[in-house]
Every structure is written in C-alpha cells, then in structure tokens.
Design a protein around this nucleic acid. Structure first.
Lengths: 225, 225
DNA sequence: GATCCGTTATATCGAACCGATACGTCGAAC
DNA sequence: GTTCGACGTATCGGTTCGATATAACGGATC
C-alpha cells in the first residue's frame, strides 16, 4: 500500500525520503501519518526488489559533478542537475542543507510494479485509505478500470451503510447518546460520500461514451455487451 | 488504543474474544477492521497486566483431557495436548487450546487502567479513530474532560483544514483533477465534522452551566442533526 | 447417515507499520 | 555563542494486520 504511494510519487518526479514523506502526508493527504519508521524500510524493500534505485546519493558535490559532466546517461541525474541549478538560481538553500540526501528514481521494474499494484482489484485491502490512494493515481488507469474502481467503492459504501443501519436497529438499547450521534454522523458522511462518487461516476461515463480514447488503449474495439 | 476499547466493552459486560471482535467492528464501528491477530495478543497483554481475568472458561471435555492425560486415540486431541503442554511450559495459566470459550471480565486494576487511558489527553495519538473511540466511551468521562476532548478535536480539525487549504494553494499545478476532487470533498467533510462537533459542544456547555453534573449521569439529550 | 459447509471460537506467524529516538548538518534567533 | 528549529537518514521495540491452522457444532444435501 505504502509502496504504491511511493512508486506513484516517484513516477512523476525523482524524490528523496524527506520530500517523499512531506508529499505523502501533506499533498496526498490520504495518509494522516506516514512515519519514517515505515517509509525507509519500504524504500529499502523497493530498492532490494529493483523497483527503485538511488539516482543521486550526495549533496552539492554530486550535484555539481552531474551539472558539469553529464556523461552518466542517467535521465534522473540530468533532471536532478536541472533542479539543483534552478534551486541555486532561486537561492533556495535546501539543495545543499543537511546530511547527504539520497534521491530515488523509478526503474522499469518499478514502472511495471506500479501498474500492477494500481490495477490490482482482487487482492484488495479495500479500506478507506486504499481507495483514496488509488484515486489520487487514477489518471494512470485505463478508463474501464477507473470506472470499476469507483463503482466498487460505491458498492462498498452502500454495504457499509446497510450494515450500520442493521446494527443500529439491532442493538438500539445498548448504544448510548454519544455513540449514536457518532454513528448517525458517520451515516450522513457515508451518504455524502456516495453522492460524491455518483458525480465522479457520471463524469466518467460521459467521458467514456463521448470520446473514444482511453489513455493506453486505442479505440479499436467497441464495447462488448 | 485497542486496549482501551477492550476495557470499555468489558466494563459494560463480560465478553469472550469472538463477541468482543464483533462489537468492535460492528457496534463501535470506529474500527473498520480489528483482526484476531491484534485482539488476542491485546487480551493476553491485559491479562498479564492483571487488568482482565478469565471469568468463565467453558472448556470442553477434550480440552480437559488434553491438559491432564490424553486418553483418546484422536490425532487432534494429541496435537492439542502437545500445544497445551508447550503453553504450560511457557507458564501461561489456563492456556486451553480447546474450543471452549473464554469469557473475560474487568478487574479493579482494569477499571483503573480504563479510566487512566480514557482521560489521557497528553500522550494522545490524536488520530481519527482515537477520537471516535473516546467519544464512544465519553459517558464515563467527567464533564470537563469530555468538553476538553470535543474542543481538542475541533481545534485539530480546524488546523487540518488550514493545512489542506495551504497545500492546495501551494501546489495547485501539481495536483490533478482526481486528487483535487478528493481534497475538496475531504475539505467539505471536515467542515461538516466541525459543525457537528459544534452541536455537541453547545449541548455540552448547556449541561455544564445549567446544573451540577455527576460523571455517572451523562446528558440524556445529545443533539444530532 | 455420511459428507459438505457456514458459523462460532481460540490462537499463532510473518510481515508491515507506527512512534520515539538517535545521529547529523545547517541557518537564524536571542 | 549557543540554543532552537528545519532538514535529512536511519533503527528499535512494540503493535497491528492478514492469512492460516485448529476445532466443534448445526443444518443442508445426497
């Protein structure tokens, strides 16, 4: 789960651990708290699996070297050098502060792993954060899988709603006022989530039926009935 | 965190593990999924700390036979006997590996531990589930601590709102449509959470200022909307 | 009446994850 | 001139999860 998030962020841009954590907590938002105690082991796992590699492993020395002599052929190193130059130009001190930072980048294996993890619908944990994370990377999914993700989530929320209502009817004398208020508020929140999903699904269907290009599949075949 | 939930449920009624899990997932609802892999170790910890004790062990005849002398020719009974001996060797009292249910109840230490955990405001994890769980047992809190719980939660949500808005303004070109929709929906949800909390806080204040409160008699009417 | 299957029930294992902490550099405030 | 906070990598102990094993029971199904 965390690995999917890391791969997704690295797909857009090479990043080091600290920045990765900031984006996971702040930008992606879905992770209320992802700690270094899980981030660094996850990075180590991904590196051991060959999904990511350390693209730039030092401070200004390596940056300057990459900037002056770009003979490595590494795309990530060139990008890092570009970013370092821009940072220096903006007199941003973060390029050379602190201890030696390790910038990670995706490999081909990592690209493939990202695609596999994102499209995995059967082996799903199916929790709330899983959906939020997948939606944040939904633009990398083909249109049909994207629609399936939204509809599966909708069905899941509808089922949760039904179970909650059953529980509230079943043990109504055991539930005190605070718990009941919590459950009712949760029910309303889930209902709003469902109608929000309905909006997304409707927009998705319009997009699917109006124009025929999905991101990775050419419109060679009509939809099957 | 899980220990607090267990203690709170056992405070109302003696329960065995399976029923405990059902109430944690269904009734309390806050825990989307609490697994046996965390429930049983938590129960063992609480038992080792003397906070709970096995009140009734409805052990079957096979378990008793395995614990004392394995007389049956059944393979399963012999395996059970092996495991029971190993458990006894680990000095675990009443380790019945049979299928008899073990009903747990609170001790005086457990009552005290529950009160301490519930009132702990400084060493808080402060995540979403923590608040929901505490609110579900808010009737056991004195009125001032209950109000503090609600106001701390409110302040937390307000801060989250501010941080999310800052993030959305800062990296607006980096955020794609799906992520933006997710963040906007999350913002609306948080705003509704805050106004829901305002209702609870108002009801709480009315109760505090209008009459003398006793911890064992929570307000009979909590506002829902 | 033997067999299959879902529910009730306890328990363990490996892997993942979290919070705290340590180690370390830098700029700014005081 | 030193404390303070930001950046930055890393590990440790303990908690939790998901999967799995074990086992007894009741009800279908053949």
């Amino acid at each position: 789960m965390l690995e999917l998030a890391i791969l997704g962020l690295l797909k857009e841009q090479d990043l080091h651990g600290y920045e990765l954590k900031k984006r996971l907590t702040e930008t992606t938002g879905v992770f209320a708290s992802v700690s270094f105690g899980s981030l660094y082991p996850a990075l180590a796992r991904l590196q051991a699996a060959g999904a990511v590699k350390a693209v730039e492993a030092n401070t200004s020395a390596a940056v300057l070297a990459a900037a002056s002599v770009p003979v490595t052929g590494s795309l990530g190193a060139e990008l890092a050098a570009l970013r370092a130059r821009r940072a220096i130009a903006k007199s941003m001190p973060s390029a050379s502060t602190g201890r030696g930072r390790k910038v990670y980048g995706l490999t081909d294996i990592g690209e493939q792993l990202f695609t596999d993890l994102l499209a995995a619908s059967e082996s799903n944990g199916e929790d709330d954060r899983s959906f939020g994370l997948r939606l944040a990377f939904a633009r990398y999914l083909p249109a049909d899988l994207r629609l399936g993700l939204l509809e599966r989530r909708r069905a899941q929320l509808v089922e949760r709603l039904a179970r909650t209502r059953t529980t509230m009817r079943a043990g109504r004398e055991r539930i005190d006022a605070y718990t009941r208020s919590l459950m009712e508020h949760g029910t309303e929140t889930t209902e709003r989530d469902i109608s929000w999903l309905d909006g997304l699904i409707a927009a998705e269907r319009v997009h699917v039926t109006s124009q025929h290009n999905s991101p990775s599949h050419p419109p060679s075949s009509v939809q099957h009935h």
